[in-house]
């Protein structure tokens, strides 16, 4: 059913787009219709596929690394009061800096290649995952707190056997946030400086007035973001399964 609904939405959107082009009579270099964008997708298929692969690889690598680092940060904070005292103010302060403003510096340090894009994604993903998971780890319901206390649990074991499984649904919503933010980060990284990737394709196409190619790259990005979000959504539902 969701597939059917998705298809219906996609077809309606395309039809509306085409209708808009016909009705407004805007020239193709301002608003290319779905037909032209599809043509551009077909014409530049190999080039687009190659750049999409580059972007997708960085996106996924950064996402995985960011989630892993975020989870490790949260577990560390939950496990050690010392870490909480030292790292929490640092984390909050780091969030006051808009990550996108760091893109030029990251590119300066790490170059135009994949590394700077991956680091941008990690920077954006790390915080929501870490803070959402940490909050959930520390917010165990009182009856369960009592239980682990009366069973004389070792703190580390309580963390892994009770707190972490209890926090998984929250981690799921952290993942959804991450899936939304990550594509932003990778594109900003590519805009600031790159020689490959869909963000690079968009900049080049823009410079040459190839609006249809810009939209084609945009469509691929939207597809990536949508797939990622759907995956995160699926994962979250699996994590919430069996919970009251």
């Amino acid at each position: 059913m969701p597939v059917l609904r998705f298809t219906a939405t996609a077809i309606t959107t395309l039809l509306l787009g085409q209708a808009l082009v016909w009705m407004t009579g805007l020239p193709p270099f301002i608003l290319p219709g779905p037909a032209r964008v599809a043509q551009a997708l077909a014409d530049h298929a190999p080039m687009l596929a190659e750049n999409a692969r580059f972007t997708a690889t960085n996106l996924l690598t950064g996402l995985m690394a960011g989630i892993a680092l975020g989870a490790i940060t949260a577990l560390n904070l939950a496990a050690s009061p010392l870490a909480r005292g030292l790292m929490r103010p640092m984390l909050v302060a780091a969030q006051a800096v808009p990550v996108f403003a760091l893109a030029p510096i990251v590119t300066l340090w790490l170059g135009y290649g994949a590394a700077s894009k991956i680091v941008m994604v990690v920077l954006v993903v790390h915080f929501p995952v870490a803070s959402v998971l940490f909050d959930a780890l520390m917010r165990l319901p009182q009856p369960l707190e009592d239980l682990i206390h009366s069973l004389r649990a070792k703190p580390m074991r309580a963390l892994l056997l009770v707190r972490l499984p209890h926090a998984l649904p929250a981690l799921g919503s952290g993942l959804r946030l991450a899936a939304v933010h990550a594509p932003f980060a990778v594109i900003v990284g590519e805009w600031v400086g790159s020689s490959r990737g869909l963000g690079h394709v968009m900049l080049m196409a823009n410079g040459r007035g190839q609006t249809d190619l810009m939209f084609a790259a945009l469509a691929l990005l939207a597809g990536m973001g949508g797939t990622l979000f759907a995956l995160a959504d699926l994962l979250q539902r699996r994590m919430e399964k069996g919970r009251p």
């Binding site: 239980l147 004389r152 070792k154 074991r157 009770v162 209890h166 919970r243």
Partner: peptide, 24 residues
């Protein structure tokens, strides 16, 4: 207590052995 305090993600058996597992 009045609330059974069972772990919703664990089986009955895993819930019963929780104490030992928590103490290592």
């Amino acid at each position: 207590a009045q609330q059974d305090q069972l772990l919703p993600w664990a089986s009955a058996l895993q819930n019963v052995t929780l104490g030992a597992r928590l103490r290592g």
